[in-house]
Design a protein around this nucleic acid. Sequence first.
RNA 1: GGGCGUGUGGCCUAGCGGACAGGGCGAGAGGUUCCUAACCUCUCGAUCGCGGGUUCGAAUCCCGCCACGCCCGCCA
Length: 582
Amino acid sequence: MFLTLRAEFEDALADALTEAGYPATDLGIEQPPVDRDAVLASNVAFRLASQVGEPPAAVAEEIAAAFPLADCSYVGRVETAGPYLNAHPSERYFAETLLAAGDPDYGRRPDRETSVVVEHTSANPTGPVHVGRARNPIIGDAVARVLAYAGYEVDRHYYVNDAGRQMAVFTWAYETFDEAELPEPERDKPDYELVRYYRRGTTFLEEGPEEAVEAAEAEIQSLMQGLEEGEQAAYDRVAAVADSVLEGMRQTLGRLPAEFDEFVRETRFMRDGSTDELAAQLEDTEYAVYQNDAWQLDFDEWGIDKNLVFLRSDGTSLYTTRDIAHHEWKFETYDRAVTVLGEDHKLQADQLRATLDLLGRDVDRLENVVYSYVTLPEGGMSTREGTGVDLDDLLDEAVSRAREEVETRLDDRTRGELTDADVERIARQVGIGAVRFDIVAKQPTKAITFEWERALDFEAQSAPYVQYAHARACGIIEQAESEPAPEAADPAALTSEATRELLSTLARFPAVVETAAETLRPHKVATYARECADAFNRFYRERRVLEADGEVYAARLALVLAARRTLANALDAVGVAAPESM
RNA sequence: GGGCGUGUGGCCUAGCGGACAGGGCGAGAGGUUCCUAACCUCUCGAUCGCGGGUUCGAAUCCCGCCACGCCCGCCA
């Protein structure tokens, strides 16, 4: 509803400006501060005043007088406040918001008939997912969800780097070392079991006797060569390791939840010949240079002073070469491609983009979401070195703390009994939701230092805060004597500031989804969910629903339903569960 | 050295050209005969890293500097 109102205000304001004899460019539309009950405002008067040489407030008055209010159905009133022009909503705006927000699909935008692939996580399958990497699946999944809400057809991909040296080392280590000489696995899961070989192998290569290391290196080299030449046996050996580890990682990521439509293997683009084809194509471009026996691309024209080697002197391809072939495939298959990647991959991403550009692809279809890693107070996390906090441990701890919370509240409950299974489910929704929300609510480019207490705060501004507001709304509806009936409710019965403010907040949800999707910033939805919970909690404290009568009761109950839907969908759009009771 | 990113009360964070910079944590004071107090209300606390500039107007844009992070491999 807000989107419609904004469009209406823009048109009417443009008309008013023309009518008053001003140019209708740059309408200066903004959101007024929270303490104003206007929904939209314009600051055009500032600019026009300096052009015309009149005081801004006088110009604002002039525009207000010319404002075609009669043509508007959602803008009910326009007022000046000094130099500002404030638009107040009509009763119809509130009525339609109440109706729209009661829909289970509230916030979902119409189908755009545009497919987009969101690639995220794509961590090398070397071991358990640790918290340092956890931002990627959480942001990635939220980006995918927000895009889906905004009307895109979304596929989620995990790109598996199964062709690199790391995986060759891992495979060699797995085939070489005996389980008997390894420590006990930290968990009974394939990723935890296998990472022991990987750690053992890398340690051996660093510290082992020179001759043995050389022999190992030869074996690793031959494995990589096998992959490059398309030997089935080589693929099978690597896949045996990669698939097992990946399965363990998939289980952990599924807890967030972060699920994938497809695990796209790097080796796929070697086996189908597309990497070789691409390399040949690149050699023929005017940006290709042959230096030091290796084929490279020169990106001066793109302002990148670092050449990209796309064929080694031995003629083999590199990770980035394969990734370019991978992206050519994405471009053929999807309308848009979004990649969520760590800040350390930025240069590579810029080179990838430049390469696609020089190949004549429309690189506007490719967008990146870049995030910084989560670090520990003492430094970064590493799978190879085994430093860091495993995501499984963080989630377990979050769930267990949430369970304690639920259990201490059990005695104070006034509504319904909870079974043990309910308690467990709620603990999981709340605990994992808290971790997830904490990450998704922050701008990805900001660095995060991991601290248990901060990651597991269940109070204000957290997921549980929003979830709690949702559960309250559910509680009211559950105990109401009649079903909420938005179509029969009259918002005129909603008179208090708190009710009006809540309704105004709910009205903005579709616009928030739109902006978040456009800018690929799911944290905007998280911020909004918090604002919704704030508005609902204030309403909850000030106005009783179940004790009201007649029109007021019906209107408030409809408002509660609207808030419930909005809160549930805002949480869903960032991938946080919305329990009906907690 | 070059490139990219970040710098907002003690701590975390929103805002990224417009109305006195919003929240939360923390500290303090209140609030439940009433729909779940994981809540609400009030108080305390900010040279928006520093210095210039553009503008009627700058946390927001430009330039310089400082601090921190990341990258600058025929690794991934």
